[in-house]
């Protein structure tokens, strides 16, 4: 169980391949938002979780539309600076580049994956969604999500062990 904000001790006990459940506030940001905020995101980065995602529009009576991960490696150029500033967890799909793995080790952070294309299923774990920055980006705006038991798998742990390179 991960409850942000996260400290080094929460991260160090995670091993590549572990299944985790996240409960609390996480923030969505993908290409356009990263380009806008650079290394000054519009939320407290210390101990935070960023989810590389942008949802479909919210149906009436629901909290959010479908929300699955996008390919994380597109954010590789932005991630090291954010990790240096205290970002602890990134959630996406696919593998990461060497520079991100190095920044993960250096800063005691972790990269989690969720299955791509199971976006309707994942939406069930979101209890509240608020756009907190860049509404002009539409789906790519930064959303603060309150999630409960959001399921993910540790892909790269704080020691740099990588689930994709094992398989």
């Amino acid at each position: 169980m991960l409850k942000p904000p996260l400290a080094n001790k929460d991260i160090e006990k995670l091993n590549a391949g572990d299944r985790v459940l996240i409960t609390g506030k996480i923030y969505t940001a993908r290409d356009a938002a990263h380009q806008k905020f650079g290394n000054n995101p519009p939320f407290d980065i210390k101990g935070a979780i960023i989810y590389y995602a942008s949802p479909t529009p919210t149906p009436s009576g629901k909290v959010i539309g479908s929300i699955g991960p996008t390919t994380a490696s597109r954010m590789d150029t932005f991630a090291p600076a954010l990790l240096d500033k205290g970002l602890k967890v990134m959630i996406g799909k696919g593998n990461r580049g060497q520079e991100v793995v190095a920044a993960i080790k250096k800063n005691k952070a972790v990269y989690l994956v969720v299955p791509g294309g199971v976006a309707a299923l994942l939406s069930k774990h979101v209890k509240k969604s608020t756009v907190i920055a860049y509404p002009e980006l539409g789906a790519e705006a930064v959303h603060e999500l309150e999630v409960v038991d959001f399921p993910a798998i540790v892909a790269i742990d704080s020691k740099g062990r990588n689930v994709f390179e094992k398989s």
Partner: peptide, 11 residues
């Protein structure tokens, strides 16, 4: 779930 609730399969 997507079929039943008319939600997109993927975002």
């Amino acid at each position: 779930i997507a079929r039943k609730e008319k939600l997109p399969i993927c975002q």
